[in-house]
Design a binder for these strands. Structure first.
Lengths: 301, 301
DNA sequence: ATCGTGCGATAGGCAGAGGCTATGGAGATC
DNA sequence: GATCTCCATAGCCTCTGCCTATCGCACGAT
């Protein structure tokens, strides 16, 4: 049994006419007759009574017709469904990202992506890089934005650098302006508002201070991104955040760090062994065009 | 898209293994790979992610799988349904027959047929030959038992003689026994119980009397078969009926007609231009074996 | 590090299936 | 009775699907 045979069969059933059915399916009449015969032979039953000038379904033909129609409709559905995935009219991307990027980069990028492909479902997992790497490996995520370098002993992931973010110091607009530009060493003794454990920014900042030979002092610690910014706004201290996040908090004073400053590298990661779904690759593309077009520094040359 | 490709696709999806899938569907592994590739190319999307040692469905594959399963299940159903018709496990016969045969021949034959093929639906249309011929031509009946010869101007029907029935005279067991054997001429003046118009038996009997030069006289006329027998039983007169019917009315006196007597020829008719359904052909076969095995005379040599 | 092993992809050849054109033959039509 | 319509048949060609043989690659064991 073959799809063409069913197609021809339905055409004959509907036209009650071999020659016209052949025209409809764009084959010669003998080819159509031959295929109908082959189908009848395989099923072991005549499907049409070929009375002169009056082709009619036999009982076997009547039994086959609805199933043939359904099979053909299903094949069409299959084609359409796959096409919708291919053409990004439907689909799903499971994207992991650290909180700082969810606040800074993602809103605009996801908005742009959604405008391009409104049929694609976007699932965001907001976690530290460590968790994201694990979820990627499990197959629970298609893509993740991660802070480089990845934790040691990472599973086989492919990473592509997306952008470098400069870190800046934010402080309350009401407080006295700090010296500009701020050096890391200037943060010694400075009251800091610090993220909870798990933020890459925390590890990065603390490591930088230790490299300068001091332990940073926290007035408040443990909050998420929004809370940290709120504490800073309330004058509880200053915080080190990505420039992209600082740019969005317009009522805070933003001070750059003195060279060489602090920067972190954001990369897009996915499993090396399986190609991400079409929609995920498209999101990756949009992320890159946004990354290079936006204010942050693009990937290293 | 082809059925085999879907079959191979489902096999790979279920085994997650090209080589084992190829074994399962009894083709070589390259052939299977090639067909999967062809399917992927036609659909324009990868269906499997071929990670080393871990073949997995892509999103397109996930979308296709349920439809592929359903399509394959439908083809199997189609095969089975047609087979059931072919093997007479299912089906329908629309049989027309005159009342005398519905009373005489059919009960036993239909019982035998039903025992052979309990899944076949039997629809009986009880009418005069004239109506039956019309219904056959319309396609409302598959087969009809008709009294020969057919009415003039019959549409293109194929008839096969089934049996010759002798007509006999039945009379009340309580009434005085008629002379034996009765001649047609003896019916002159004899009170007759006569069927309603439309019975072939009526036309046949009246024609026979007229051929002898007299008009038959009816005490009661217009009843169906059962009513006529009842009137005879009640002593209202005698009636001319087929021997097969008379044999079933055991409380009536049955008297043969003197040679050459009266007989009628029963034939099986169907449209010449379309072959009857399988079940109808089978009923035809059973009718013949019953006709030759039963008490009546078989078809003319 | 090297080799063996398992697995999917690739190459090349063969046979069959399905398509086409041309033609046959049986009813219907004028 | 000539013609027309329409489905079946015949013969040929191409393309496809299957096969065997082999490659390439990653992984595991030695």
């Amino acid at each position: 049994m073959q799809f063409q045979q069913l197609l021809y069969f339905v055409a004959v059933a509907e036209t009650r006419h071999f020659t016209r059915a052949a025209e409809r399916v764009h084959v010669s009449q003998p080819s159509l007759s031959q295929q109908i015969r082959a189908l009848e032979k395989e099923l072991g039953a005549e499907l049409f009574s070929r009375a002169r000038g009056n082709v009619a379904l036999t009982d076997a033909g009547e039994a086959l017709l609805p199933l043939a129609r359904r099979i053909l409709a299903d094949t069409e559905t299959a084609r359409v469904e796959v096409q919708e995935l291919v053409q990004l009219r439907r689909g799903r991307v499971r994207l992991g990202a650290p909180p700082s990027l969810c606040t800074g980069l993602l809103p605009d990028v996801l908005r742009a992506f959604h405008d391009l492909h409104p049929g694609i479902e976007l699932l965001i997992e907001e976690s530290g890089s460590h968790d994201l790497v694990r979820e990627l490996a499990r197959g629970a995520l298609d893509l993740a934005l991660v802070v480089m370098p990845l934790p040691a002993a990472s599973p086989a992931l492919t990473t592509v650098e997306l952008l470098h973010e400069d870190l800046v110091v934010v402080s309350s607009a009401a407080a006295p302006a700090p010296r500009r530009p701020v050096r890391i060493a200037d943060l010694e003794g400075e009251p800091l508002v610090m993220f909870r454990h798990g933020y890459d920014l925390r590890e990065l900042t603390v490591a930088a201070c230790r490299a300068e030979g001091f332990e940073p002092s926290f007035t408040v610690e443990g909050g998420e991104m929004d809370a940290v910014l709120g504490f800073v706004r309330a004058g509880l201290g200053v915080a080190v955040v990505p420039s992209m996040v600082a740019a969005r908090a317009r009522d805070l004073r933003v001070t750059a760090l003195a060279r060489p400053g602090l920067r972190r590298t954001i990369a897009i990661a996915h499993r090396s062994d399986v190609a991400p779904p079409r929609a995920a690759r498209e999101l990756q593309r949009v992320l890159f065009s946004a990354g290079t077009a936006g204010g942050a520094t693009g990937p290293a040359a």
